[in-house]
Design a binder for these strands. Structure first.
Length: 156
DNA sequence: GCCAACGTTGGC
DNA sequence: GCCAACGTTGGC
């Protein structure tokens, strides 16, 4: 079982949207590094940190779980979608989706600034290479992050 | 295959 | 809105 961090803009789709619909297709990934992870490594049962980007409080907002593994992202074949890719075809699809399910919303977002200031997290992909939208998270990083979230719970 | 120009992501 | 850090495109 592996751990991941998925980014999204909460204006488009955030933890509250996932909590409402319970299960959602993770689509629109158009970066080869992220695609390769989705295609080759993300598996059913993997745990996912849902990260909110480009918003007021950027950071980790909650947890999701992978419930369906790699399949072609249907938006790449839809000419009306902004994710349409004319160079892709159903017999040779270029882009990949997975499905995730809601697990938990944190009482409050764990801010990026807190993650950056924790020496135990200085090797996180999120810290070292900000721009990747699907990132691996180590078991240790996962535990440190949940520890920070839980400490926030008891302080409140 | 190099590299300049351009486009995108995403924090601040 | 700015800008740094990437990624992609296309001429040669």
């Amino acid at each position: 079982m592996n751990y991941w961090l998925f980014k999204s803009e909460p204006d488009e789709f955030g933890i509250d949207d996932l909590a409402a619909c319970k299960r959602e297709r993770w689509d629109g990934i158009r970066n080869y590094q992220a695609r390769n992870l989705l295609r080759d490594q993300v598996a059913v049962g993997d745990q996912v940190l849902l990260y909110h980007s480009s918003c007021k409080t950027v950071g980790v907002a909650g947890i999701a779980e992978v419930v369906k593994e790699a399949y072609p992202d249907p938006l790449q074949f839809d000419p009306d979608s902004k994710y349409f890719d004319p160079k892709s075809s159903p017999d040779n699809p270029r882009w990949i989706s997975v499905d995730i399910a809601y697990v938990e919303k944190f009482p409050r977002v764990l801010p990026l600034a807190s993650i950056k200031s924790n020496p135990q997290l200085e090797e996180m992909v999120l810290v070292k290479q900000g721009r990747l939208s699907i990132q691996p998270v180590t078991a240790h990083e996962w535990q440190v992050i949940l520890g920070m979230v839980n400490r926030g719970r008891t302080d409140a």
